[in-house]
């Protein structure tokens, strides 16, 4: 396995569409729930332990060889908001394109064939990690980090937040991210043997509700 492949996959410039998604930050900024670095940090922390954990566990499970079709259904059940399900599938499809160009693999081709309109992004991420020769932990780290780096980058653009402050937020979250990834990997690795019910299902009600509000805006900067 190539550890450097993890850097390629986790790079914020990996062309898989993430730059156009704020992870709910655009709605939270407009609603006044994110106003600066402190509330961005609280927002990211909430994301990390809810959708971040679920995404990381899904990615770990996919990387560990669990059935991606079952994982995709588990992701649907853990994502009540149709706007977020749609965003996750669009991002999955965009990631699929980049992944197949970067690490051609039969498993990626099969997944693309199974989900022509895209599987949930963390599932594609886990299969991509496999194709890149990475493991469950690598996949979980990628998913976990994306769950907070997206909103942090978006808030730099939305509030003109000092980018050094936003980066400081991400750095402060790193120890929590490590612990969360351990949980996600343990759950993800258990899936091939025990089924998808062992996956965490942590939810952030305001992320789901906010995503529906955002989807109804006539004018927005970010896709989600």
């Amino acid at each position: 396995m190539s550890r450097a492949a993890l850097l390629v996959l986790a790079d914020g410039r990996f062309p898989a569409g993430g730059h156009a998604h704020s992870g709910g930050a655009e709605e939270a900024v407009k609603a006044g729930r994110i106003t600066g670095a402190a509330s961005l940090e609280a927002f990211c922390r909430g994301r990390l332990h809810t959708v971040g954990l679920v995404g990381a566990a899904l990615a770990a499970a996919a990387a560990a060889g669990a059935d991606p079709v079952e994982l995709d259904a588990a992701a649907d059940a853990r994502t009540p908001s149709p706007a977020l399900r749609g965003a996750a599938r669009r991002l999955g499809r965009q990631l699929m394109r980049a992944a197949r160009a970067a690490w051609p693999s039969d498993e990626l081709d099969a997944l693309a064939g199974e989900f022509p309109k895209g599987a949930h992004q963390p599932v594609v991420l886990g299969v991509t990690a496999r194709a890149a020769g990475l493991g469950a932990q690598d996949a979980a780290y990628c998913a976990a980090y994306e769950s907070v780096s997206g909103p942090a980058t978006a808030v730099v653009r939305l509030l003109s937040l000092d980018p050094f402050e936003a980066t400081g937020v991400l750095a402060r979250l790193a120890p929590e991210l490590d612990l969360m990834v351990d949980r996600a990997v343990a759950a993800g690795r258990a899936v091939p043997g025990e089924g998808v019910d062992v996956l965490p299902a942590a939810s952030g009600p305001l992320l789901e509700i906010g995503a529906e509000a955002h989807a109804g805006w006539p004018v927005r900067l970010f896709a989600s």
Partner: peptide
Amino acid sequence: RTVLDQELACGPGAPAGWDGPAVLA
């Protein structure tokens, strides 16, 4: 077929962020 699976953890000892802008604000 599972159509909904949702967990929520709140209060002291719950993972941080439960009271914040992404969860319950």
